[in-house]
Amino acid sequence: MLALVSGALLTLSSCSSDDGPVTPDYTVPATYDFAQVNNTDAVARVSMWAGFTSWLGKGASRELNSDTANYLWNNTNTAFTAEIAGNLPYKYDALNTMTISLATEVADATQFKAYADSMVNLSEFYATPAAPGIAGKIGNRLVNHSGLEFNQAVAKGLMGALVLKNVYQLLDKVPTDDNTLTSGAPSEMQQDWDLAFGYIGVPKNYDTAFNYSTAPVPADRPLAIGGYFGERGKYIQAGGRVFEAFRTGRAAIGAKDYSTRDQAISTIKEYTEKTLAAAAYYYLTASQTQSDLAAKFHSLSEGYGFVLALKYRAAGSKLTATQYTRLKEILETPFYDLAADANNTDLKEAAQIFTTAYGQLQP
């Protein structure tokens, strides 16, 4: 299902109201291989996300430094190192030379930086046993007094606050963009489309059948929400659908086929959101059968992070505001209390909210 229209010749008869007749025929390539693509800023920010959140996770085994957190967040003082960002689409040495940062493009940046700072502060207790009301280590996980891993709230929450926020803003802007080509440069519409693709976090030759975790792990691999297309979005075929929609939409923009472009936007929005929902549903369901508290709290922390990400879902989402509020209420319950309920009453309710809104998300 990777590319049902890859390489196919599409015959079109519609017209654009603002650009004249649509080119009758055009080809959708099998990869995101288009002229003059420049989405460096988007791909680099996803690399920054990967490096920053990986560094936060190290707080489970050593004390973190608040200055480093600030430098990574703002991309100052050459904070990215080979350890933090050594095998990414943009490595540490390239990231350190850029003038962009996470701080400027994350929605609710103060909130997510506070989660990150909380993880830094929590790392002081990496050798302290955790207990109800006491922050520390449980298994190989570092949790706060209620059982939450702050690094998971950041890593998964930013898939919404960084990725979805920017992808949707760019795609919402595309229909009103200028699509006039100039020599040697993409049109404004093409540029915004390319940036949106960069934030998705998949390589231009993305293959849903390839196992990107096989050694040697490629630097240009799916990251952020792109990484979850295969991990939790496989059942709904999110990766193939989104990748195909991006390729089709970009080709359609070149041919001034705006109807097809708009269909692609709808597909991208639907399946990026459903990927986050599928991930949240998976972790909330898995947590119900986990007796080991470290594993249960990890699942709940991931689920909470994905719920945070869904705040930035598309307008008109199938997940209502009332349903979303209830999900947050459940996952802001202390995890020790959720774990104490042998019937998993609240967690079953949360899982039901997802299936009611989105239908079946996992096999």
Rank of each mutant, 00 (worst) to 15 (best):
V143K: 00
V143N: 01
L148I: 15
L148N: 14
L148A: 14
Q152G: 08
A161Y: 07
L164W: 03
L164I: 13
N166T: 09
V167D: 05
Y168R: 03
Y168L: 09
Q169I: 00
T176N: 14
D177F: 09
D178G: 12
N179T: 00
T182E: 11
S183Y: 12
G184N: 07
E188T: 12
M189G: 02
M189C: 08
Q191R: 13
W193K: 07
Y199W: 10
I200V: 13
I200H: 11
I200D: 09
V202M: 03
V202Y: 01
P203H: 13
Y206R: 09
F210P: 05
N211K: 02
Y212P: 02
T214N: 06
A215N: 13
A215P: 14
P216F: 04
P218F: 10
P222C: 10
I225D: 01
Y228K: 03
G230H: 04
K234Q: 12
Y235C: 02
I236F: 08
A238T: 07
E244Q: 13
R247M: 05
R247N: 08
T248L: 14
A251D: 01
I253K: 08
A255S: 11
K256W: 10
D257H: 10
S259V: 15
D262R: 11
A264V: 05
I265L: 06
I265T: 10
Y271H: 00
T272D: 02
K274D: 00
T275M: 11
A277W: 01
A278L: 05
A278D: 04
A278I: 06
A279V: 05
L284C: 06
Q288M: 06
Q288H: 08
